[in-house]
Amino acid sequence: MVHCPECEATLAERSDIEFVETDATTGFLAASKRFYVTTCAACGATIGSGIAGAKAGGGGGAV
């Protein structure tokens, strides 16, 4: 069984965690990427993160 490292809540169901999408502009190409943070639904502690590919219409052209 998996538990939150902060509050020790059991993370067994999809509803026990929340996914938050955050946009960021990086580099001189101003490409927008999608960053994901996974948080515990009980206490809000960040328990994971990831990066997806460039977001459509993210302005990948040179500035």
Rank of each mutant, 00 (worst) to 15 (best):
V2M: 08
V2T: 12
H3N: 10
H3T: 14
C4H: 04
C4K: 11
P5Y: 06
E6S: 12
E6T: 08
E6W: 02
C7P: 01
E8R: 14
E8M: 07
E8W: 11
A9L: 01
A9K: 03
T10Y: 07
T10L: 09
T10D: 13
L11Q: 03
L11D: 13
A12V: 01
A12W: 01
A12H: 06
E13F: 07
E13G: 07
E13M: 13
R14D: 09
R14K: 04
R14G: 03
R14V: 11
R14Y: 11
R14C: 02
S15G: 08
S15L: 03
D16Y: 12
D16W: 04
I17C: 02
I17W: 03
E18V: 05
E18R: 14
E18A: 13
E18W: 02
E18L: 04
E18M: 03
F19L: 10
F19M: 07
F19Q: 00
E21A: 01
T22G: 00
D23P: 15
A24G: 13
T25V: 14
T25D: 09
T25N: 11
T25S: 08
G27H: 10
G27W: 07
G27F: 02
G27R: 05
G27Y: 02
G27K: 00
G27D: 14
F28L: 05
L29A: 08
L29W: 11
A30W: 01
A30H: 09
A30Q: 08
A30R: 15
S32Q: 15
S32E: 13
K33C: 12
K33T: 07
K33P: 04
R34V: 07
F35P: 02
F35N: 10
Y36K: 05
V37C: 01
V37A: 13
V37M: 11
T38G: 05
T38E: 15
T39H: 02
T39L: 09
C40I: 00
C40S: 04
C40M: 01
A42L: 06
A42N: 07
A42S: 12
C43H: 07
C43S: 03
G44N: 10
G44F: 02
G44R: 08
A45C: 10
A45S: 15
A45R: 06
T46G: 10
T46F: 02
T46S: 14
I47R: 04
I47M: 09
I47L: 04
